[in-house]
Computed example of a mutant assay.
Amino acid sequence: MDRFSQISVRTNRYSVPVRLIGRTVRAMLHASELVVYDGQQEVVRHERLIAKGQARLDLDHYLEALVRKPGAFPGATALEQARSAGKFTLVHDAWWEAAKAAHGERDGTRALI
């Protein structure tokens, strides 16, 4: 796993929780999904990417790091993918805006995370 909390499988990249950076994980690639294990414990399931050179990033995998660096949150690729997948909705955005208005940019973003 690399320093960006991602593993490479064939020609694609998949996120894993940041707590696993530096650890060796095992990936099982199936027809429609990828399952990642830390030892015997399953840590994540991703829908398998078919096209080459793509990345599947789960925003939840990065929250632990983003709370320490909230300035990276607005431009995070994982946030963009979460929005595209409908997992980060207009409700989340409204709450985030309210939190920033109440606490400032950094602390409001931390409150969201």
Rank of each mutant, 00 (worst) to 15 (best):
residue 1 M to Y: 07
residue 1 M to G: 06
residue 2 D to T: 06
residue 2 D to W: 01
residue 4 F to N: 09
residue 4 F to Q: 11
residue 5 S to F: 02
residue 7 I to F: 13
residue 8 S to D: 11
residue 9 V to S: 06
residue 9 V to G: 05
residue 9 V to P: 02
residue 10 R to G: 05
residue 10 R to T: 03
residue 10 R to L: 09
residue 12 N to Y: 03
residue 12 N to F: 02
residue 12 N to V: 03
residue 13 R to D: 04
residue 14 Y to A: 07
residue 14 Y to C: 09
residue 15 S to C: 07
residue 15 S to A: 02
residue 16 V to F: 03
residue 17 P to L: 05
residue 17 P to H: 05
residue 18 V to R: 07
residue 19 R to E: 12
residue 20 L to V: 07
residue 20 L to M: 12
residue 20 L to N: 08
residue 21 I to M: 15
residue 22 G to M: 10
residue 22 G to P: 14
residue 22 G to F: 07
residue 23 R to H: 15
residue 23 R to E: 11
residue 24 T to D: 15
residue 24 T to Y: 15
residue 24 T to S: 15
residue 25 V to E: 03
residue 25 V to W: 02
residue 26 R to C: 11
residue 27 A to Q: 01
residue 28 M to R: 05
residue 28 M to G: 01
residue 29 L to K: 11
residue 29 L to I: 14
residue 29 L to D: 11
residue 31 A to N: 11
residue 32 S to G: 14
residue 33 E to R: 15
residue 36 V to H: 01
residue 38 D to M: 05
residue 38 D to E: 11
residue 39 G to Q: 08
residue 40 Q to N: 14
residue 40 Q to A: 15
residue 41 Q to Y: 14
residue 41 Q to C: 09
residue 42 E to V: 06
residue 42 E to Q: 13
residue 43 V to R: 04
residue 43 V to N: 02
residue 44 V to K: 07
residue 48 R to M: 03
residue 48 R to H: 00
residue 48 R to T: 08
residue 48 R to G: 03
residue 49 L to K: 02
residue 49 L to N: 05
residue 49 L to D: 04
residue 52 K to D: 13
residue 53 G to T: 02
residue 54 Q to F: 11
residue 54 Q to Y: 09
residue 55 A to H: 14
residue 55 A to V: 10
residue 58 D to N: 10
residue 59 L to R: 00
residue 59 L to E: 00
residue 59 L to S: 00
residue 60 D to L: 06
residue 60 D to Y: 02
residue 61 H to C: 01
residue 61 H to D: 00
residue 62 Y to E: 03
residue 62 Y to C: 00
residue 62 Y to V: 01
residue 65 A to H: 12
residue 67 V to G: 05
residue 67 V to S: 08
residue 68 R to A: 13
residue 70 P to L: 06
residue 70 P to G: 02
residue 71 G to I: 05
residue 71 G to S: 08
residue 71 G to C: 02
residue 71 G to Y: 11
residue 72 A to F: 14
residue 73 F to S: 00
residue 73 F to M: 07
residue 77 T to Y: 15
residue 77 T to E: 14
residue 78 A to F: 08
residue 79 L to F: 04
residue 79 L to E: 05
residue 80 E to A: 07
residue 81 Q to A: 00
residue 81 Q to D: 03
residue 82 A to I: 02
residue 84 S to A: 15
residue 84 S to H: 13
residue 84 S to F: 08
residue 87 K to R: 13
residue 88 F to P: 04
residue 90 L to N: 07
residue 91 V to E: 13
residue 92 H to D: 13
residue 92 H to P: 04
residue 93 D to Y: 02
residue 93 D to M: 07
residue 94 A to E: 10
residue 94 A to Q: 10
residue 94 A to S: 12
residue 96 W to I: 12
residue 96 W to C: 08
residue 98 A to Q: 09
residue 99 A to R: 05
residue 101 A to M: 13
residue 103 H to K: 14
residue 104 G to D: 09
residue 105 E to P: 11
residue 105 E to A: 14
residue 105 E to M: 13
residue 105 E to D: 14
residue 107 D to C: 02
residue 109 T to A: 10
residue 109 T to Q: 13
residue 109 T to M: 08
residue 109 T to H: 01
residue 110 R to V: 14
residue 110 R to T: 10
residue 110 R to S: 11
residue 111 A to T: 10
residue 112 L to H: 12
residue 112 L to T: 08
residue 112 L to N: 08
